[in-house]
């Protein structure tokens, strides 16, 4: 099995995360251990041979063998995400290949820290793999996650994130559209001040990962460079729109 070879995965479980987001557990005959941050390519084929293909980050920890979780947001009129949300049921099979990507990856046992994670929306998915990986290997590397969602109900993995926020992991939420009563987190789009506050204790050499919609990634990366974080320590992944 090589990572560029297509294989047929069976969807064994579908878990709703929010109103627009579901996690899919894929059982893989040719499972290969991934590195946290990597993705799989998923392809759908119609009876006439027409194909649609998209990339999806791995949400689960590399330490889980034989299967992976993908967490997928339903995009309005999205060809692939809508199909996965509305048509697929457990037992269905889809073609995938991976793990892919050698840059936006983090290994808790070898890559130093501290680690700063900045995510918007479903951009939290690869970060989740990193946090689950850190927990699975019992690493002590300090990690801060700044995570932007529209509303409280749009926060993906809300409860699991809360339970992971211990022993050196700190999580900062910002809700850009509306906030529940008594909300104490940030309540605006990610900006210079917010990034400076969250990154300050880590200094200029924090290993930084930024993931989400392209505009968020661009603005967060420029802002962190302005805040004099080392550019060569900032890794970015852009989810779209339009996938690739």
């Amino acid at each position: 099995m090589n990572t560029l070879q297509w294989q047929i995965a069976t969807i064994t479980k579908i878990t709703p995360e929010t109103a627009k987001v579901k996690s899919f557990t894929l059982s893989l005959p040719g499972w290969i251990k991934h590195r946290a941050g990597q993705h799989y390519d998923l392809r759908l084929t119609a009876p006439d041979g027409y194909r649609a293909q998209r990339s999806y980050s791995i949400a689960s920890a590399p330490e889980r063998t034989g299967e992976i979780d993908l967490t997928i947001e339903r995009v309005e009129d999205g060809e692939v995400s809508t199909f996965l949300h509305q048509v697929v049921v457990p037992g269905d099979r889809v073609e995938v290949r991976g793990p892919i990507g050698g840059y936006f990856v983090w290994d808790a046992t070898t890559s130093g820290g501290p680690v700063l994670l900045v995510a918007g929306g479903s951009g939290v998915v690869p970060m989740m793999s990193m946090l689950r990986h850190r927990a699975a290997v019992g690493a002590k590397v300090p990690v801060r996650l700044l995570y932007s969602s529209r509303t409280y109900d749009d926060v993906i993995y809300r409860e699991e994130l809360a339970s992971l926020a211990t022993g050196g992991v700190e999580i900062f939420h910002t809700l850009t559209r509306s906030q529940p009563a008594g909300w104490t987190g940030y309540a605006r789009r990610i900006d210079d001040t917010m990034l400076a506050e969250v990154s300050r204790p880590f200094g200029a050499s924090a290993l930084t990962f930024i993931c989400g919609p392209t505009p968020l990634v661009e603005s967060a990366a420029t802002s962190l460079e302005r805040a004099s974080l080392r550019a060569d320590r900032i890794k970015t992944e852009r989810f779209g729109p339009t996938g690739t």
Binding site: I8, P47, Y50, A52, E79, D92, R93
Partner: peptide, 14 residues
Amino acid sequence: ERFVTRGFGGRPRS
């Protein structure tokens, strides 16, 4: 034989 995804028609091509 080519794998076909159950239930997938894809975006209208014409």
